[in-house]
Nucleic acid binder design. Sequence first.
DNA 1: GATAACGTTTTC
DNA 2: GAAAACGTTATC
Length: 289
Amino acid sequence: MSASGGLMEGNQAREDEDARDSCCADEETSPVVERRNRSGIISTPLSKSLKHSRALSQYIATCSAAAAVANANANRLAQSSLVPAGIKSHSVDAQHRGQVGLTKLDRGALVSSLLDSPSGLHLAQAAELLRRASMLLPVSDSSNLGVGGDMEAVSASDSLGSVTDFPLLSNGGGVGGTFPFHPGLFIMTPAGVFLADGALSQVTGASEQQQAHNEMAAAASANAKKKRKRCGLCPPCRRRINCEQCSSCRNRKTGHQICKFRKCEELKKKPAGGLEVMLPTGAPFRWFQ
DNA sequence: GATAACGTTTTC
DNA sequence: GAAAACGTTATC
Ligand SMILES: [Zn+2]
Ligand SMILES: [Zn+2]
């Protein structure tokens, strides 16, 4: 546990700091003193930024690498007039230069995001869950999961723990829940897990269904309680500069939100994330009603 | 305890 | 439905 410690939001930027410092030690040529917090995020003090928020062009000139990034930022700003809706990586090479390889936190965030999916359930975990489910139920042919050729079955990870990792399936452990769905009814794709047509009507009993729903709701809510972490890889995540102009920056005191240009793309998506179970209709399946 | 920022509720 | 405000968690 301690090995993967230090996963604070912002550590990522800390290591970049070295690379950046080497290229721009004299960044205080700017009249306004840059304030970098210990994470390396550049942001002026709230009061200062409120008094006279600098034009983006002003903190563009701080450093070559940062300048490149900020330049793209400025361009984008100019185009979108502070609406970060369409963030695209025009500045790939600029970011590449500013960021030599993955930093510690990038990797940490990546690993973290792999272990902790946005939905709280990892794909591998889901796969394992389904696999175990297939063990519990008499399945004629579970190898195919009942999908066509273009669907991709996800191999289960063997690094997962015992059945206790899946309280929903531990029929001997006291919980007593039984997985309510035939594993073949699940369609697993890289985009998410889908529930095959008629799956809901094949559940054995109403009370069991209710119980299973309760169990799932409990597990889901327990997982959903956890705060998601930024991916650390998307362009906004890689940005280290608070624009100080967006509403989140200006309103930091009460808003408690990260700069809109730094908001992780993954976190922008709704928490259900990649493991949303979909009904054939396309509507999301509700674990609890 | 300070700070950053995600999640939820409230407001518009 | 989007933005603001608030509550809360996570890290140092
Ligand atoms: Zn901002
Ligand atoms: Zn991200």
